[in-house]
Nucleic acid binder design. Structure first.
Length: 735
DNA sequence: CAATTCGGGATCTGC
DNA sequence: TCCCGAATTG
């Protein structure tokens, strides 16, 4: 690596001293612990520029890995503006890097050139064709377990008990899935990491070549990496490569899909000689927002520890509103929105996508413009997946999942039986389904036989078009000649959906690619991996509706975090302490999105599966020192705020309501509900049960004529009771 | 083989 | 409450 320049180049002058250290660091491994809003992207992009401009590193020997395409795109753009050569760097997501690598080495990796990527839905379909008698929920669970196993780099032969309790069953399911997927010649998301890892481990020539190519490896959002990615990184980084990872252990929120916080917590052990740099100055939020965030996350045990600070002033205190129900919550948000002409200043955050519904319908009704980030992903739409299935089948004719998807859509009298016969013929002869379609298939009815011949004609013609015409023409013809376009057009007609428009969008997108098999594979890869590109225009005055997970990396002048109720957020109230810590980190992420103003809302009643359920306020509210926020309408709370205690899973006290506050007025409507039989057992109340001991009421709802309560006990048990029949003694649980 | 109806169960987060 | 899959019927 080049020598340190004597003077600091001009373009680095905007950096603070710690950032500058991180940018100029050379030699051994570097871990940058970058707090929320600490200018992380800035540091990475400046570092890329610095490596190119000052250290004489070839741009093409720099690999930067991110977790989302959005982050990759942003990094690419910003780096290129600092150092023109940076456009030659390889800046990709882990998965997209894996796909690139496999595409380039497909032969050595044992894959056909036209392999495509199966998403979760495809995986379930494949499992379904292997185990037709299993229920869908069960297959969903198996698919999740398999993908989790792959996150941990586990194979069917490994001990899978970490992934599921039914590991014997999973082993068999996983094994058959694994074999079938190899026969088909496609990969799933996990394979995009695992198969490059396998190849690098077993093929020294490939490993040496790639290690020589990438002299510098940068990883963003390292706290979200999983075990397989950790291993891949290790195989990728040679002894003379420079490795720099950037992340924030406090923002690790993807455990459910295999992210392993330990990767970042133990990085310095895995890579001896690591230099650690902490970016703790926050440039985003006011002091009072940061105070609140820090207080909450400080309760987590498993963290490296870091305290954000800011030069900004304290600003207004975050506000907390207790509301009666989700309708009142919408109303509350609307009022905040109306205090400011700029809708785009505000983001409304929620834990689950389902919560967006009420906001959508109300905003639609009132003419409040909004945009939803990341719910319906473009390629997951039915019509898009249909057309893609045709294309994928052209790319890889052994793709059984895609074949089954479109063979009888629109209906052409090829039912399950006939399709099975065709697939059987294919399996008997190498697995090529398009060949089977062209062959004589025994046992078909006259009608089915005619349909088979027709479909064969369609695919023969499309196959011919793969090399001959441009990709957008191919996509167009694929939609047209299979009848999918017409099929969806008629759906549009009586549903008023915009399916054809989406197909057109797909045709458009294909226009950016060339022609031929390679372009086709590249296009399909982009669609699969760049899942949530917004079809709607980004700009314009609109409120943002978004899940907390999706806000990672974003910021807004004003943030409203909704649904702070025990059981909704944190969600995994009945799971282990690890789950709660993860939820707490998610809360931290959500809070630190806010630049100037922060609002928190908590509803007493919420409709769940058509039933009205009463919830206790989120325990996180009890973890905030009262002086750090303003409870709406008065200085005192109008509802029981859970008091924090040493044991994060337990303990809160009943503070009787203080009347006459704004929040009281806001929640008038549904309070009229009577809960006679369990009147002294509202959520948050302490109870004693003869067998289970001390507990806290988590939820209360109606079932038929009975009132039910769900109680979380000190010993970790969760149980549901009908208070009318079960003796539950109301107790005070103050220490 | 396709269309209609009915009943039971429930996606939490997402590359 | 809503949606999907199974059973039923044409």
């Amino acid at each position: 690596m080049g020598s340190l320049p004597e003077t600091i180049p001009d373009y680095l002058h905007g950096l603070n001293p710690v950032q500058l250290d991180a940018v100029r660091h050379q030699g051994g491994p570097l871990l940058i612990l970058a707090g929320a809003g600490s200018g992380k992207t800035r540091v990475i992009t400046y570092k890329i520029a610095y490596l190119i401009r000052e250290c004489g590193i070839q741009p093409r020997s720099i690999l930067a890995v991110t977790f989302t395409n959005k982050a990759a795109g942003e990094m690419r753009e910003r780096a290129a503006s600092l150092a023109p050569g940076a456009s030659e760097c390889m800046i990709r997501t882990f998965h997209s890097f894996g796909a690139w690598f496999l595409r380039r080495n497909h032969e050595r990796a044992g894959l056909p050139a036209g392999f495509t990527i199966y998403d979760d839905d495809d995986v379930v379909q494949l499992l379904r064709s292997l185990f037709p008698d299993e229920s869908k929920p069960h297959l969903n669970a198996q698919s999740r377990a398999i993908s989790r196993a792959k996150d941990y780099a586990l194979y069917p032969g490994n001990d899978l008990s970490a992934v599921t309790h039914q590991h014997e069953e999973l082993r068999d399911v996983y094994r058959r899935y694994h074999e079938r997927l190899r026969e088909i010649g496609n990969v799933d998301f996990g394979d995009l990491i695992l198969r490059p890892l396998e190849l690098l481990r077993r093929d020294e020539a490939v490993r040496t070549r790639i290690q020589q190519r990438f002299r510098v490896v940068l990883v963003d959002e390292y706290q979200d990496s999983n075990v397989a990615q950790f291993e891949l990184l290790r195989a990728l980084v040679g002894s003379d490569s420079y490795l720099c990872v950037v992340g924030d252990d406090d923002q690790s929120i993807y455990r459910f899909r295999g992210a392993e916080v330990r990767n970042i917590l133990t990085f310095h052990e895995q890579y001896p000689g690591t230099t650690t740099v902490r970016l703790e100055q926050n440039y985003r939020s006011t002091g009072s927002i940061l105070n609140l965030a820090s207080e909450v996350v400080a309760r987590n045990e498993g963290r490296l520890g870091k305290r954000l600070w800011t030069e900004r002033e304290d600003g207004p205190l975050p506000q907390l509103a207790f509301l009666s129900d989700a309708e009142a919550e919408v109303e509350f948000c609307v009022r905040i929105l109306q205090a400011d002409a700029r809708y785009s200043n505000t983001a409304i955050l929620y834990r689950t996508n389902a919560q967006s519904r009420l906001f959508e319908s109300e905003f639609l009704r009132r003419g409040i413009p909004y945009r939803i980030v990341g719910t319906l992903r473009f390629y997951e739409r039915e019509e898009v997946k249909d057309v893609l299935a045709v294309l994928r089948l052209l790319a890889n004719p052994r793709d059984e999942v895609s074949f089954r998807r479109i063979v009888n859509k629109p209906a052409r009298s090829l039912g399950l039986k006939s399709v099975d016969r065709i697939v059987d013929v294919a399996l008997a002869g190498g697995g090529d389904l398009l060949d089977a379609l062209a062959a004589a298939v025994p046992g078909l009815t006259k009608k089915a036989e005619k349909a088979r011949a027709e479909l064969d004609g369609v695919f023969a013609s499309l196959t011919g078009a793969v090399e001959g015409s441009s990709l957008s023409v191919l996509v167009e013809r694929a939609a047209e000649e299979t009848g999918l376009r017409e099929y969806h057009a008629s759906q549009d007609e009586y549903q008023g959906s915009g399916k054809v428009a989406n197909i057109d969008e797909l045709v458009n997108a294909a226009g950016l690619y060339g022609s031929g098999r390679e372009a086709l594979a590249e296009f399909l890869e982009m669609i699969e991996l760049d899942a949530n590109r917004d079809t709607a225009a980004e700009d314009g005055e609109a409120v943002t509706l978004i899940t907390m997970h999706n806000t990672k990396g974003l910021e807004f002048p004003r943030v409203i975090i909704t649904g702070l109720e025990e059981g909704l957020f944190p969600r995994g109230a009945d799971e282990g302490p690890g789950e709660i810590e993860e939820e707490r980190r998610l809360f931290y992420v959500a809070v630190t999105r806010a630049e100037n103003e922060l609002y928190l809302t908590s509803c007493r009643y919420r409709r769940l599966y058509g039933r009205i359920t009463e919830y206790a306020p989120s325990r996180f509210l009890g973890e905030i020192p009262p002086e750090l926020l303003e409870t709406l309408g008065s200085g005192t709370s109008s509802r029981r705020i859970p008091a924090a205690s040493g044991d994060p899973g337990f303990g809160r006290q009943g503070i009787p309501a203080a009347g006459g506050t704004v929040s009281d007025r806001l929640r008038s409507a549904s309070d009229a509900e009577d809960w006679e039989e369990a009147d002294d057992l509202p959520p948050g109340a302490g109870v004693y049960h003869d067998d289970y001991g001390l507990g806290v009421v988590q939820k209360r709802w109606r079932k038929g004529t009975n009132v039910m309560v769900r109680v979380g006990f000190e010993n970790g048990r969760i149980a549901t009771f009908i208070p009318r029949y079960t003796p539950l003694e109301r107790v005070s649980i103050d220490e």
